[in-house]
């Protein structure tokens, strides 16, 4: 059984009587340990797919399982728990809390999993070491470069040791050189055995991942066997 199982998932928005199918009958499996990229033009539904995969949103139709849990049936409290325990999310715009320092930002997911202060600190420091920022712990996000901020965000995504890390255009807001280091970091994490799915509209980035899925108008466009390993 795959770690993530998407079956006939649609996401439909209604705008003034018009029906927008942001996702249209998508089926997709992601196995444990995979490193995949999802690529497609703007407005094709990449973020929508990412939000559903990341349990931030529920599908309008179809089913999804993550680590055996039926997401479409889960309550919002259960979804929050899944996001907290099984998923790490990395955003294009970093989404760190500006009022907290680096360490506190990385500790935040553990605040909601009820870990005590020393545990939180130990894990956060460990995660920051993984991304090479253990010497920036007391800095505010605003005092860091974009690449450093994104590395903090990655540390935050990893800190609860999730089953899978989703990244929505993690390099989209960075120059190409910095983007390269972030990508290298993902590659390294993948080699350490983590499951990673990232969204991009940059072919060069997509080409670097072992598996790549193309999406167009809410449908999976390459039929490179989306269900089951390539």
């Amino acid at each position: 059984m795959a770690l993530v199982e998407l079956r006939n998932v649609s996401k439909i928005y209604h705008l003034g009587g018009e029906e927008i199918r942001a996702l249209d009958d998508v089926s997709l499996d992601i196995g444990a340990g995979e490193f995949i990229s999802i690529i497609g033009p703007s407005g094709s539904g990449k973020s929508t797919l990412m939000h559903i995969l990341g349990c931030l949103d529920k599908p309008s139709r179809g089913t999804m399982k993550l680590d055996g849990i039926a997401i479409e049936k889960a309550s919002s409290a259960q979804l929050a728990h899944v996001r907290n325990q099984k998923i790490g999310f990395v955003f294009q715009f970093f989404n760190l809390l500006p009022k907290l320092n680096v360490l506190q930002n990385v500790e935040l997911p553990m605040v909601y999993s009820g870990k005590n202060a020393t545990e939180r600190r130990d894990h956060a420091v460990e995660a920051l070491k993984m991304v090479g920022l253990e010497n920036r712990m007391k800095h505010r996000p605003m005092q860091l470069s974009g690449g450093q901020q994104q590395r903090v965000a990655i540390a935050r995504a990893l800190v609860n040791n999730p089953k899978i890390v989703f990244a929505d255009e993690p390099t989209g807001n960075l120059d190409s050189k910095t983007g390269e280091t972030i990508l290298a970091l993902f590659k390294q994490l993948s080699e350490e055995g983590r499951t990673i799915a990232l969204v991009t509209h940059d072919d060069a980035i997509a080409a670097r991942t072992p598996r790549r899925i193309e999406i167009r108008d809410g449908k999976i466009a390459n039929f490179q066997n989306p269900v089951g390993q390539a």
């Binding site: 409290a77 929050a80 325990q85 989404n95």
Partner: peptide
């Protein structure tokens, strides 16, 4: 609002 969105995305529940 954005802060609340971030907190929710990383696992804060309704009651949190």
């Amino acid at each position: 609002i954005r802060e609340i969105g971030i907190r929710k995305a990383i696992g804060a529940t309704y009651s949190d």
